[in-house]
Design a protein around this nucleic acid. Structure first.
Length: 581
DNA sequence: GTAGGGTTAG
């Protein structure tokens, strides 16, 4: 470090090889050396020192230097904000920024980026918009750094159309800018837009990097779009997936949730595995009906020296649920708190309620909800409702649905199920009251539809929709299959209407539910032996589930159906969900 | 001196 020989302060040069400890020490030495008369009032010296402290994570020192300044300039305000950010005190960083603006500071591009980033982290839309406007007034909004930070700020505040506006107006876009927008669509639940943009960036000659690939993979996961996922994979060097655990996780998750466990073996080849990769793999194995391998992996994980965390236990408990291991689930839940010192979150309770409900231990599950240290949410009640459906407990289901309607007043499915329970026990007045509640609350029934990817296009199917060019053949195929199923003893399961959401669809339309139409279309358009993949916007209905199991046996096809809750892997007359979903 | 990413219970 150069030793100051005069009152003029020369900031030391830092390289990344300096440890924070060394920097901290240098900062303190500097502070001592600067304690000479007439130096500490020099604003340049103070600002440089402030910058140094901010960099060295010495927030208190930075603050006291700042407080000594009579007229802090833009650079010194920015340094102070940075110091708060580096100390992880983001809310206070935003508060400092607001003070700065109130005092008349005008941001340069560095201030704008810092503050927009801070606003993004704490989702402070109000301050974020003030900064973005100021950046435009100061003429720094054209900077790709500033605009990208603004896009990300809008993204993190969930303001996707504003984010897109800023993005579209950017005079230049690099991979980071594309990444912010692609990732933004992905994290805000807009998988279609994610993929559109991911392909658009490529047609504009920007090569996807790992950030954009991660976003597009997570979009494919949501859509159940395995082929597009594979395409996204091909845009990157394979080694990157093996060396980058974030990419690897997105990939494993995509394969697992699109029902392609075979490809998820990439896990074994990965050279860098962090806790998130392990957790995703264990969960993925459970979801695809390979729970036993999942448990083996937990053992391997501990052997490898990776400590189990709270999310690992979600994967493990989820595994117990899908494998039906009540005793093991109870043991893990107990060990989690006693041996691993992990406090269960609502997600862990949710897993336990799910586990007990599936096993038919409905009262115990209900009791657990009552005993939980936090208020149950819709997921927890939904798990109990699942148990009521399987074990035909209409009385408890009524209670659960009332809770669900309170928690999810916009979810039409809950109203319809409860109304069906009322109709089934001739409680017409209750049913009518519920229908009118729905109207009052402006809740509209969501219509079911299913879709498949075929030769680069998405084909959509709905009950009663005859617009598809192959519809005649599709109906004919379903009728043929229906005949064969009857000889196998199949009867339409209309008695489950009590719980089914698509209530107005009686037996004759049951035969032509959207998922069945989609599967028939696939049988007509794909080669024998090829795996069939269908996605549905709502849950698969009970009758369809039975029928698809039979179709998988009759046609010797593996059929993978992704619904809005999970996916079902049908093979040889069985489903990977063990008939619970 | 400045910008973007993965798993997580119905």
């Amino acid at each position: 470090m150069p030793k100051p020989t005069s009152t003029r302060f020369t900031p030391p040069r830092f390289t990344h090889t300096h440890s924070p400890g060394t920097n901290k020490h240098q900062g303190l030495v500097l502070r001592a050396q600067l304690n000479k008369p007439n130096t500490h009032t020099n604003p340049y010296v103070l600002t440089s020192l402030l910058n140094l402290y901010a960099k060295c994570d010495l927030l208190d020192h930075a603050r006291s230097v700042f407080d000594e300044m009579r007229c802090p300039n833009t650079v010194s305000w920015t340094a102070l904000i940075t110091a708060y950010m580096n100390a992880g005190r983001v809310r206070e960083a935003v508060a400092v920024a607001r003070d700065a603006f109130a005092s008349g500071m005008r941001p340069d591009s560095f201030t704008a980026v810092r503050v927009l980033t801070a606003c993004a982290r704490v989702a402070d839309l109000g301050t974020g918009e003030v900064v973005w406007r100021a950046a435009q007034e100061e003429g720094v909004a054209g900077s790709v750094f500033v605009a990208t930070a603004a896009v990300d700020m809008y993204v993190k505040c969930g303001e996707m159309s504003r984010a897109r506006e800023v993005f579209d107006k950017m005079p230049e876009k690099d991979a980071v800018a594309w990444g912010a927008m692609v990732g933004g669509y992905a994290s805000n639940g807009h998988p279609q837009e994610t993929l559109e943009l991911f392909f658009a960036m490529q047609t504009q000659g920007v090569k996807p990097d790992c950030y954009t690939v991660v976003g597009s993979l997570s979009a494919c996961t949501r859509l159940g779009a395995l082929d597009m996922g594979r395409q996204a994979v091909r845009t990157m060097d394979w080694d990157e997936f093996l060396d980058n655990p974030v990419l690897g996780t997105a990939l494993i998750d995509m394969y697992a949730k699109c029902g392609s466990t075979g490809e998820a073996v990439v896990f074994q080849q990965m050279r860098k595995r962090d806790i998130v990769v392990w957790n995703a793999m264990i969960l993925g194995l459970g979801l695809t009906g390979h729970g036993k391998i999942g448990f083996a992996l937990v053992g391997q994980m501990e052997k490898s020296g990776t400590k189990l965390n709270d999310n690992t236990f979600i994967s493990i408990l989820c595994n117990c649920t899908h494998t039906g291991l009540v005793k093991d689930g109870r043991r893990y839940f107990h060990n989690m708190t006693q041996l691993y010192n992990i406090t269960p979150r609502i997600e862990h309770y949710g897993c336990m309620v799910d586990l007990l409900s599936r096993a038919g231990l409905l009262q115990e599950a209900h009791q657990l909800i009552d005993d939980m240290p936090m208020q149950a949410n819709a997921v927890v009640w939904g798990a109990l409702l699942g148990g009521c459906k399987i074990h035909r407990d209409a009385e408890l289901a009524e209670h659960v649905l009332k809770q669900l309607i309170l928690l999810e007043p916009r979810n039409s499915g809950n109203y319809v199920m409860l109304s069906n329970i009322y109709s089934n026990s001739n409680r017409w007045e209750d049913a009518a009251k519920l229908r009118s509640d729905m109207k009052v609350n402006g809740v509209e029934k969501v219509r079911a539809y299913s879709w498949v990817e075929f030769s680069g296009k998405v084909h959509e199917f709905r009950v009663g929709d005859k617009s598809h060019p192959h519809m005649d053949q599709i109906y004919q195929k379903l009728d043929e299959l229906g005949m064969e199923m009857k000889t196998m003893g199949y009867k339409p399961t209309t008695d489950v209407v009590m719980f089914d959401v698509e209530d107005e669809e009686k037996e004759h339309t049951l035969v032509y539910h959207s998922e069945k139409l989609a599967i028939a279309f696939c049988l007509l358009t794909t080669q024998p032996g090829e795996v069939i993949r269908v996605t549905k916007n709502l849950r698969v209905c009970t009758d369809c589930h039975t029928v698809i199991k039979l179709i998988s046996r009759i046609t010797h096809r593996e059929i993978i159906v992704r619904d809005n809750n999970r996916f079902h892997c049908f093979k040889d007359g069985c489903c990977s969900c063990n008939d619970y979903w």
